[in-house]
Design a protein around this nucleic acid. Sequence first.
DNA 1: ACCCTGTTGTCAACTGGTTGACAAGACGGA
DNA 2: TCCGTCTTGTCAACCAGTTGACAACAGGGT
Lengths: 151, 151
Amino acid sequence: MAENITYTLHELVSALDSYADEVLRDQYDVSFSQFQFLAILATEQPSDLSHLATCLGVTRAAVSKRVPSLVAGGWITTSDDPENARRVMVSLTPAAEDLVRLASADLEEAFASMFADPRLDPATTPGALSVTALNAHLNTLTSILHDKGHC
Amino acid sequence: MAENITYTLHELVSALDSYADEVLRDQYDVSFSQFQFLAILATEQPSDLSHLATCLGVTRAAVSKRVPSLVAGGWITTSDDPENARRVMVSLTPAAEDLVRLASADLEEAFASMFADPRLDPATTPGALSVTALNAHLNTLTSILHDKGHC
DNA sequence: ACCCTGTTGTCAACTGGTTGACAAGACGGA
DNA sequence: TCCGTCTTGTCAACCAGTTGACAACAGGGT
């Protein structure tokens, strides 16, 4: 077992990411980062590039470069903001909305069954924690050292 | 608070990383990824490129490309393995050993004081968890979905 | 009306990773 | 000994992010 909690966290995150990536590629033929882009856009729709960039935690330039391929793939559409000629507004296509809905449910179910492991059950393992309680703790930790969330 | 635990984990990790990066740049003039490279090498010294790559969780090519600049910076030295002419063995310089020792202690202290927040104290917050207990839970989670560690 | 300042998207150049191909050496079995 | 196979490091090409610069537009104060 890793002694250092930062090391543990990196391991866990990369394990979760690669698992999610595998599921998404197998069943929906999209990468994890594509799904992430679309899933976040789904909750912020319609959004301009800048806002999307801060939500994704990347720079405007990075988002700007990803847009053309997502448009070509039929996942998003761009439009003008009549209020501001500089702004580029982005929305999901119906196909992307379906994808986000189905894949989110799939991933959630996959994680739930993974978290159903007996080693995480307080009834069998003394001191174990429910996932929601764990999530709350991690959120507390995050808010302690990084007060402002992205969105 | 983020509802999704994977999202929470990403937030926490990136917050921890950028905090560590800031501390290391301010006080030791190295980046987080440089420190990471040296700190892992410190526990595996001396090591060939392949082993170092698996410990770092990157490819051999990535390590191969980083070596020249670390040698130029006076952090590592390379030598031949008399047993195997293909192998390139890597070791820390004394300066790097000092850096790893001092910076590790500094970071550990910084994290400890961060984790001393009252919101994480079981005495004041019912249901709160010690960092070591949290670490154990995260390790359990990791081992459930990704049995093999890097090193 | 005009300027100053801030916002927004895009670009070129760079960084640090990946993949796939490859050559050099290690090594065991026929 | 020689051959097939594995390991090891390196390379070119690529990918997805960053930074810093920039131009276009928005909007407020004078």
